[in-house]
């Protein structure tokens, strides 16, 4: 009798111990957060700041590794093929739904598992400070009477799509002038007069806005941006134009549910910390958060929107 009870106690304690070990098994080593874009760029900075805040709740280092190439596809593919053990995650951005539509890239958002959306930046319509247009309407009027020089990033990239949407919805006629190296050279060209208008996020234009070289005519979002309360949205001006780029964390498709849950919680916490939100606000990145299910639905919807836009082009 006694032996049997001892045995039961022993078995139960072993089971409890095992259960507690399993519970604490993850994470035990540093986690790699892949950033599919270059060091120092918008996504890279967001990744690094987010990583720092994720470390607080995960208890292990979160190391950002840049895997640049093919507009982000290299980084996305790398993580999609990585070990689904919770130690490999990636900060994806809008291109994960636009690359398969506009370029011939094979990877889609369905090849990864959503963990959480952490940021959204609406596009802003930007002109040179000393340009003759004060409102969106002025610009559109000009764009109806002649071809404008519109700056874009490489065909298929976010701000190129923004320019196409702008033209589609407002009837502006223009010549696309692409700058493949990103928003920075595009804005420099704007300041120098080579192009007359460009769309990109407020975050990317921050320094030129503050130095007074450029100004925003309108923003392509649902509501006015918190850091520019005086700038109207396109909707207010009468044009149903919205477009934003966004960033979110994803993991390899087969990452187990319990590990994903830990990640989801960590990302949610990190994204909602005071410090992270302040960082976003100060640098004019938009704060958005979507949980995994909402994130997936959002990406599906985006994919559909862009497929439609492509067909209309």
């Amino acid at each position: 009798m006694r032996h049997k009870r001892c045995l039961v106690i022993l078995v139960v304690s072993v089971l409890v111990l095992a259960a507690s070990l399993v519970g604490h098994a993850y994470p035990q080593r540093p986690i790699t957060l892949v950033c599919p874009y270059g060091v120092g760029g918008g996504t890279d900075i967001v990744a690094r700041v987010l990583a720092r805040h994720m470390e607080e709740s995960l208890g292990v280092p979160v190391v950002v590794e840049n895997k640049v190439g093919a507009g982000g596809a290299v980084g996305f593919s790398y993580t999609a093929q990585a070990n689904p053990d919770g130690y490999n995650i990636v900060l994806v951005a809008l291109p994960i739904v636009t690359l398969p539509v506009f370029q011939d890239v094979k990877i889609t958002h369905n090849d990864l598992r959503p963990i959480g959306l952490v940021n959204g930046d609406a596009a802003a319509i930007i002109v040179r400070a000393n340009s003759p247009w004060q409102t969106l309407e002025d610009l559109i009027e000009a764009g109806h009477s002649r071809q404008l020089r519109i700056g874009t990033t490489s065909p298929g990239a976010a701000w190129w799509i923004g320019a196409q949407i702008l033209k589609q919805q407002t009837g502006i006629q223009g010549v696309d002038i692409p700058y493949a190296a990103g928003a920075a050279p595009m804005l420099t060209a704007l300041a120098g007069g080579e192009i007359e208008v460009a769309t990109c996020s407020a975050a990317e234009a921050t320094s030129m806005l503050e130095s007074g070289e450029v100004r925003i005519l309108a923003v392509m979002s649902e509501e006015r941006l918190p850091f520019f309360p005086d700038i109207p949205t396109c909707k207010e001006e009468g044009y149903d134009v919205t477009f934003s780029t966004w960033r979110g964390i994803m993991a390899p498709k087969d990452t187990p549910d319990d590990i994903a849950a830990v990640l989801e919680e960590a990302v949610k916490e990190a994204a909602h910390t005071e410090a992270f939100r302040k960082f976003l606000y100060d640098n004019k990145y938009g704060f958005e958060y979507l949980n995994p299910k909402e994130f997936k639905d959002f990406m599906d919807a985006q994919f559909a929107i862009f497929t439609e836009i492509k067909e209309d082009l």
Binding site: G41, A191, M208, E210, S211
Partner: peptide
């Protein structure tokens, strides 16, 4: 161009710009 307009002159200053932003220093006037 980095401190006057916030435009990086080359790839290293691009990273430097990122670092400035992280510290809350915004280039420009």
């Amino acid at each position: 161009p980095l401190v006057t307009f916030g435009i990086p002159g080359d790839s290293v200053t691009a990273v430097l710009l990122g670092s400035l932003l992280i510290h809350g220093l915004r280039p420009g006037k």
